[in-house]
């Protein structure tokens, strides 16, 4: 056991059993007495995540590596957390610049896939969950779009964290510019909305290129039920007007 790991184990024990005095001697080779109350909240939060044995960090994950890497923030995650998702000025510019630089396009151009497959992907929230009930990596990962967006106007169980996408293709058309925008929004939406809640489905390699093309078809294909009805757009974009009695059933 190295000094460092011994010290870490010791601190875990100290925190859980109040044996700080006894522990400092064991860890004394490290020559550092760790007084938690001298830590900033950020330092203590980091300690809690990575050193306090609070998380199952050793669990293997489907993208390779372990859950520890999942907990490490990249620059975007860090900047948005620090600014409480309200980045201003230079930071917002930096986020947008990083997001634009992250775009990778399909080799054969941005094309629409199969809207029926897209419908299933939009409904599914399966994939990448770990911990006590590990999602099977062999199964197709869903985009979970309905958790936050209205899409097919006939589907009642939609969330409203994101804007309604009903009649998306009907309203915007299926031009190359629209396809490019939709692809980029799915790939890394921070290029347009810095620190949005929406996941970076492409950049994080959460969805495959194939899956993105199918979801895009669900949004833009004229045959898709998302575009099946020509409705007054004003009638459906106000999520606050949703009936109040339908919580979770």
């Amino acid at each position: 056991m190295t000094n460092k790991t011994r010290y870490t184990a010791c601190m875990g024990l100290a925190l859980s059993a109040g044996l700080l005095a006894g522990c400092v001697q064991v860890g004394a080779q490290n020559d550092e007495k760790r007084d938690f109350t001298k830590m900033s909240p950020e330092e203590y939060a980091d300690y809690l995540i990575f050193e306090s044995d609070s998380f199952n960090l050793a669990q293997e994950v489907q993208e390779g590596g372990t859950a520890r890497e999942r907990m490490q923030q990249d620059e975007l995650q860090r900047l948005c957390s620090e600014t409480r998702n309200r980045p201003h000025g230079e930071i917002a510019t930096r986020i947008v610049t990083m997001a634009r630089a992250s775009f990778q396009y399909p080799e054969d151009g941005i094309q629409l896939g199969d809207w029926e497959k897209g419908r299933e992907l939009a409904r599914s929230g399966y994939g990448f969950r770990i911990g006590h009930n590990y999602d099977n990596p062999e199964r197709t990962v869903g985009g979970n779009c309905y958790a936050c967006h209205q899409m097919d106007p006939e589907e009642l169980a939609y969330g409203n964290i994101g804007p309604s996408l009903s009649n998306y293709g009907e309203l915007r058309g299926n031009t190359e510019a629209v396809r490019r925008f939709v692809y980029e929004m799915i790939y890394n939406p921070h290029a347009y909305f810095p620190c949005t809640s929406m996941p970076r489905m492409g950049h994080n390699e959460f969805l495959t290129q194939d899956s993105i093309s199918h979801i895009m078809a669900y949004l833009l294909d004229a045959e898709s039920p998302v575009n099946a009805r020509k409705k007054d757009p004003d009638a459906e974009v106000d999520p606050a007007a949703a009936p109040s009695g339908d919580t979770g059933f």
Binding site: R70, M71, C80, S197, N204, F206
Partner: peptide
């Protein structure tokens, strides 16, 4: 700090669901 800390495959933090009033996931 943990509540606001975004990380993981979907860039979420607790705050992603519990900051804006009147929002739902699906019907919840």
């Amino acid at each position: 700090v943990l509540f606001h800390r975004r990380a993981g495959s979907m860039d979420f933090g607790c705050v992603s669901c519990h900051s804006e009033p009147r929002k739902r996931i699906r019907l919840s």
